[in-house]
Design a protein around this nucleic acid. Structure first.
Lengths: 153, 153
DNA sequence: AAATATTAGTTTCATATGAAACTAAATGCA
DNA sequence: TGCATTTAGTTTCATATGAAACTAATATTT
């Protein structure tokens, strides 16, 4: 059939996959960021830190960075802000005094318990816009693309 | 069955849809940004401007902003940079001297013609990782989610 | 054990971003 | 026509970001 022996040479931004995915993700992020900000005065980065520590307490900053796909500078700043606001407790690990041990304070847990439903409700509405089949497809696709070594593309 | 009568109350970041989409989009963007930068010294914003003007010349900055999902400040800066580097020509519209008329210079067209294959090849590799069915699903999903009024979720 | 290298986390610095203020032109309205 | 309003694009300003330098602690050599 000889389809695609030579590269397609036209490009329309509207149909360009990386562009579409990026625009979509930004739209979702901005909306969610707005909610966290107005309701809890929390940034997305801070939300992510709360989220992993709510689920798994006593992580180090590096572990948080790993689980949140954030870089260590961003984690450091989010952690310090959350600590200064009283939502996080941070102390040094006994065995290794470089490492910090992070966990939610009582107040942090309270905020966490309020913010999680907001996040989940947003996700639920998003999911509700899709059929069960589409949702399955979405999971399949995300899993597959997530597994790719994008650098190598 | 009573599934989900009450909201789920646990949240794992790994499974949280907005998070997954965002991380994925960032990974794609960063990779592509790296290519444009190292090969052409062009940012993603600049690439987008080139892309729409390569496809549709003589747009105003506002039209570019519209087609690229960029805000006007970002467009202004990208346009000025591209103009100063000689890839874009910018003159005032005859009928309306506030409006600019933007188009690629000869050199800009040359870069455009080099950069488009890089973008398309990246997209093609991405698509190649999916089956035809999955690709169809991806398009369906993007179209559907793109159509949502995210603010209202 | 002293010297060297590695690791965790912070700070610095240079750049990116976007909201709001601004400038200039065009349009609406008195 | 003159004044207010809107629109296109730029500039300013305050904040966000991340790479690289830094500090302090631990681990590894020699």
């Amino acid at each position: 059939m000889m389809k695609n022996t030579v590269s397609t040479t036209v490009l329309q931004l509207d149909n360009f996959l990386p562009y579409r995915i990026s625009v979509l993700a930004n739209r979702l992020s901005r909306t969610l960021a707005g909610r966290y900000q107005t309701q809890f005065q929390i940034s997305i980065a801070e939300w992510r830190v709360l989220a992993v520590l709510g689920e798994t307490p006593d992580l180090s900053a590096a572990e948080v960075a790993d689980k949140t796909a954030m870089d260590k500078v961003a984690v450091s700043r989010a952690v310090n802000r959350l600590t200064s606001v009283g939502l996080l407790s941070k102390h040094l690990a006994e065995q290794d005094k470089r490492r910090s041990v992070l966990s939610l304070t009582t107040e942090g847990t309270l905020i966490y318990q309020q913010i999680v439903p907001v996040a989940l409700s947003f996700e639920r509405s998003l999911k509700a816009a899709l059929t069960a089949t589409e949702l399955t497809h979405l999971h399949t696709l995300l899993a597959k693309i997530q597994g790719l070594d994008v650098e190598a593309l």
